[in-house]
């Protein structure tokens, strides 16, 4: 019998657990981090919407006890955009993966970031297509391997937070399955931030990405995250040489550009004042 914490009882659909993810997968830990962040913020369950796309990450929606919608591949962000614009009082959180968010859904990602719509996108980034069995994704590093890269991957990888920030996201951060506390904090801050937030979370996939690329066991992959992820303030003190194999864990960027629903509300007020085209009814 698995002992479940109070948090799990409060935020998850116990009768749908255990989850389907492989042993050693980071998605379960990251899902718990999302739940902890929502719980810490004391958001009302009925006002939280979890939107997911398709892929391993997308199954998280079904396990979380909020308003949940499992949409089509790549389209979680535009579904979330519709929900948020229709009901701005809802807290809309997208759980997506590297393929879902940046390959098939890449255009939606940059445009939602550009609009700075007040949704939070959490990427369960495992550097591979897991659900379909190990094909290379936009975050599989060049030179690595996938079932569709049998001679080595020649595509370069996206830096997802950088991509989002350049497109206009007003909050970006990075988390990992290993750095639980920092990741919860990053997600929490991202949800609280009044604009488009993106938290890119490394999720070890020992089954496909790890095995294909000789990354060792699930534990080895977690150790890699531990040894290479550093908080921003420590990262700043590293020499250029030391930085080459390190990455920042925690907040990467933040600004105060107004959120889209806030701007849309102002647009509605402007439209009330202005007599535009003739009105028939």
């Amino acid at each position: 019998m698995i002992k479940t914490s109070d948090l799990v009882f409060r935020t998850m659909r116990i009768d749908h657990l255990p989850h389907i993810w492989c042993p050693g997968c980071g998605n379960g830990i990251l899902m718990r981090d999302v739940a902890a962040a929502i719980d810490n913020l004391k958001l009302r369950q009925e006002k939280v919407v979890i939107v997911s796309g398709i892929g391993c990450s997308s199954r998280a929606a079904g396990y979380l006890d909020f308003n949940t919608i499992h949409t089509t591949h790549g389209r979680a962000i535009p579904f979330a955009t519709g929900i948020k614009l229709a009901s701005p009082e809802l807290e809309v959180i997208v759980i997506t993966g590297d393929g879902d968010c940046t390959a098939i859904g890449g255009n939606h990602l940059i445009h939602a970031a550009r609009r700075n719509i007040e949704i939070t996108v959490i990427v369960f980034n495992n550097n591979i297509y897991g659900m379909t069995g190990g094909q290379y994704s936009p975050t599989t590093p060049a030179g690595e391997w996938g079932t569709t890269a049998p001679y080595g991957n020649i595509d370069r990888q996206f830096d997802i937070p950088q991509l989002a920030a350049d497109a206009g996201a007003s909050y970006t951060a990075r988390g990992t399955a290993y750095h639980t506390q920092q990741t919860i904090k990053a997600i929490q801050d991202g949800i609280a931030h009044p604009g488009f937030s993106l938290i890119d979370c490394y999720s070890p996939c020992p089954t496909y990405y790890g095995r294909k690329n000789k990354k060792g066991s699930a534990v080895d992959m977690m150790k890699y995250q531990r040894d290479h992820g550093v908080p921003a303030e420590q990262y700043a003190k590293l020499s250029d040489e030391e930085k080459t194999d390190k990455f920042i864990v925690g907040k990467l960027s933040q600004n105060e550009y107004p959120g889209y629903t806030q701007l849309y509300q102002q647009l509605i007020e402007r439209s009330q004042e202005r007599s535009q085209k003739k009105v028939y009814l």
């Binding site: 949409t71 089509t72 389209r75 955009t81 519709g82 948020k84 229709a86």
Partner: peptide
Amino acid sequence: VFIQMEDEIASIAAVIGASVA
């Protein structure tokens, strides 16, 4: 709400999202 989306796929997705809400 009126929104011009980035393409038609996003348009129908947003419409379904709004209807869910």
